[in-house]
Design a protein around this nucleic acid. Structure first.
Lengths: 123, 123
DNA sequence: GTGTACTCGCAAATGATTTGCGTATTTTTT
DNA sequence: AAAAAATACGCAAATCATTTGCGAGTACAC
């Protein structure tokens, strides 16, 4: 069924995707409705197979759950998102847990700025 | 003018506010339209007086610019947001800049989990 | 005083996402 | 395998935060 096809698109994508990107991709192979994509996506998120992250642009991005942490470098010029694992947040999370008693289960981190590509073009 | 009143609400609030919260607050004193609040907010953000952060709930939160970094502990039960500065992201940002050439200008960090209050009630 | 620039309110538009509902399609039960 | 129960899906309309067009009101400049 369509759920598998949608899930595969996410599984095979190196970066997180919007519902629309997923819809466009899936549409090339099968006939599907955008609302079905959204419904399926919510389903996959509920089942913890997919992670949904809302970024500053207010659009939800989906990616495989348990894939590496959701830390992005987002270029404010070209709007591309690069992910990075260059961050030791787990340590910080543990510290917060220890010192505040807040039971942290997930986190999102978004760096904004200008990517090297765009920096070149500015000059 | 109304811009000052709106700005003051933000200035005097210890935590970040939604447009609607600001609207409700301001409405107690003066007659104002919600679209004016939004327009003013965008204005203040443009002038770098106010910072806008979109959280995972897809709602924009506004706070005084240059106030401490935007790191939140958000409880998924009560939905309260606690801010924390217990994180050394500037160091990480510098490292990323150094190693990738990405020119980072800002960042947002959101921890999700259950706050100590709600943890108590669960049991 | 007349022009020019803001500031606002109001109603309508936007855009991502959700939902109601009727119809297929699959799965379970007998 | 047929009937019953549960899902999956398309379509159109609804949602909800936020934005925008437009016309009226207000302020400050020449």
């Amino acid at each position: 069924m369509k759920k598998d096809i949608i899930f595969n698109v996410i599984k095979n994508s190196p970066n997180s995707l919007t519902a629309e990107e997923i819809y466009n991709d899936v549409s090339q192979d099968i006939d599907v409705n955008l609302s079905t994509v959204y419904r399926t996506l919510n389903n996959l998120v509920e089942k913890d197979l997919v992670t949904k992250v809302v970024r500053q642009d207010k659009i939800a991005y989906y990616e495989l759950a348990n894939s590496e942490p959701k830390h992005y470098l987002i270029c404010d010029k070209c709007n591309n998102a690069y992910s990075t694992d260059m961050c030791d947040l787990d340590k910080i999370a543990r510290k917060i847990k220890r010192e505040t008693g807040f039971n942290i289960t997930s986190h999102t981190l978004e760096f904004h700025g200008i990517c090297p590509e765009c920096l070149k073009n500015v000059k």
